[in-house]
Amino acid sequence: MKPAKFEHQRMASLDEAVKALGNAEGETRVLGGGQSLGPMMNLRLAQPDVVLDLSKVEGLDGIEETGNAIRVGARVSHARIEDGEVPGKTGDYMQFVATGISYRSVRNRGTIGGSVAHADPSADWPSALLALGGSVTAAGGNGIRTISLDGFTVGPFSTGLGWDEILTGFELPVLGTDANWGYYKVNRKPGEFADAIGAVTLGVEARAVCGATESAPFRVTEIEERLASGVQEVSIAEVRDILDRYDAGFDDYELQIHAVALSRAVQGAFA
C-alpha cells in the first residue's frame, strides 16, 4: 500500500458531504474521480487524514443547456465530454480539450470538477475554462454560492473555494455557431500534463489565456483587445513581447513555449 493511512468516508448525499466537511478534524480532502488526488496520495505528496468520497453522490453528473448557459456537473468525466455530450460550439471546444487530457482509462474516471478544484497548474481545465468564462457553483455551510471563473484559480493547488465548500458544477457560456476558438498545449507526449497552454475563445467577448504557468493561468488583455478589433494573427515574437511584460516568472525557454502556445491557439481559432 503506497498512500499514508487515512479515513475513508463514503458520502450518500451532497448535504452529508457538506456537513462532514464542515465538521471534519484534520486535513480533509474531497474525492471525485481520484485521478489527480490518487497519484498524489500514492506518492505521499498528499497525506489527508480524511477522504470524503463523492462517488455515490447523485445529482452532480448532469449536463444541460438552459437558455444562455450550459450547466455541467462537477462529476462529469473527461470521457463523457470527449464523447461529445456537451452541446454546441462550447461542446466542440470542450471536446477538443478533453481529448488531450491524459489517457482514456484516466478520462473514464477523472472529473472536470475534480480537476478545477484540485488546481494543478499544468492541468487543462483551469486554463481552458478561464478562456471560456462563466462560473463555478459551490455548496458550503452557508448554502450555494456562484463564483466567477475569472480569478477562481488563485495559485498552485489553490482556488476560491472556502474551506467548507465543495465544487458542485459549472455554468458555462453558449458559444455562437460561428464563434471561433483555439487551444494549443505544449507537451512532449500526448496525454501528459502541459508545459504550456494557449487558449482562445471569441464568444460574447474575446478571451485569451496563458496557462500551465508556475502559478494560476491568466488572461492576456493586449491579445484580447487585438482579437476584439478583428486581428486574426499574432506572431510568436509579438506574443513573447507581450508576455514578457507580465510578472509570470518565466525563464527564457518558458517564455518562448508559452508564446508559441498562445500564438498557435490564435492561429487555430481562425484555421
Binding site: 485521478q35 490518487g38 497519484p39 500514492n42 470521457a79 482509462s105 484516466v106 473514464n108
Partner: peptide, 8 residues
C-alpha cells in the same frame, strides 16, 4: 470501461 486500478 478501462480504468487504472493503481489509482482507484
Amino acid at each position: 470501461e478501462p480504468v487504472r486500478s493503481c489509482i482507484t
